[in-house]
């Protein structure tokens, strides 16, 4: 670990066993006991190594299924890798899959408390910032409406607002700036700028070449679970576009 590195990823591998026949229930296991299954190992990440340096914004690009989300979940401690080593030397605020996943039976305020405490905030901290979070998400008027009545865009805005309020030293962002209308994206970008100025380090995944080339000091390109390119945001974004257009 160098003094400037906040996350060290060394030869991290991850694979999933894909059965020929999926059995998710006791009944299927009992009735299928005499029908042996074959398992295929799907290598999602294959000895991926990189370092996230203090103060930088590192982008990760790649096609669907290349292992980006799995990698982020490993970094955030949600998945454990099969091989390799992940050294995390700073607090991480993960902003993953925010378009989905709230408790639909709770209103916005309760969901803010729920997500906020999961992200490590104290109740006092959330209470102090609650109005700001709702205003940022433009949901002040719907604060007591259950989430099941929200549109997906409204739910995503709320999620970003919570996550952008609760920020540890490293922000891990999955498909940022992909939700909401132009106005909300502009607010997210402005907030992102504030956090960068405050010295936060950012690791972001995006399919959008503009986002990576605009916001990232450095970027990585994943394909088939392997790291195939590393360079500036603009270089990797261009290589990603090449990869997409070259593929039949």
């Amino acid at each position: 670990m160098s003094a400037a590195s906040l996350i060290d990823v060394e030869a991290v591998s991850k694979s999933f066993l894909i059965p020929s026949v999926r059995r998710d229930t006791v009944r299927e296991h009992v009735f299928g006991v005499f029908e042996p299954r074959r398992f295929e190992q799907l290598h999602v990440l294959d000895r991926v190594s990189f370092t996230l340096r203090r103060g930088e914004t590192l982008g990760i690009m790649g096609r669907n299924g290349c292992g980006k989300s799995t990698l982020l979940r490993i970094l955030c401690g949600i998945y454990i890798p099969d091989g390799g080593r992940v050294g995390v030397h700073a607090g991480i605020t993960p902003i993953l899959e925010l378009g989905v996943g709230w408790n639909p039976e709770l209103d916005a305020v309760d969901n803010v408390y729920l997500m906020g405490t999961v992200l490590g905030l104290t109740l006092r901290g959330i209470s102090a910032q609650l109005d700001g979070i709702l205003a940022f998400a433009e949901l002040d008027r719907f604060a007591r409406l259950k989430l099941k009545h929200y549109s997906s865009g409204m739910a995503s805005r709320l999620a970003y607002a919570v996550a952008f309020a609760a920020v540890r030293e490293v922000l891990v962002l999955d498909e940022i700036f992909a939700v909401g209308d132009a106005g909300f994206r502009a607010r997210c970008e402005a907030r992102y700028g504030e956090l960068r100025e405050a010295g936060h380090t950012v690791l972001m995944v995006s399919h959008d070449p503009r986002t990576i080339s605009t916001f990232c000091d450095r970027a990585l390109l994943l394909d088939g679970g392997s790291l195939i390119a590393e360079g500036t945001g603009a270089e990797v974004a261009a290589r990603y576009v090449e990869l997409l257009t070259a593929t039949p």
Partner: peptide
């Protein structure tokens, strides 16, 4: 519209 000010709340390093 300009974005409302969102103040950073630093989460506790571990679980609160």
């Amino acid at each position: 519209t300009p974005h409302p000010r969102l103040t950073t709340i630093v989460p506790s390093p571990d679980v609160a």
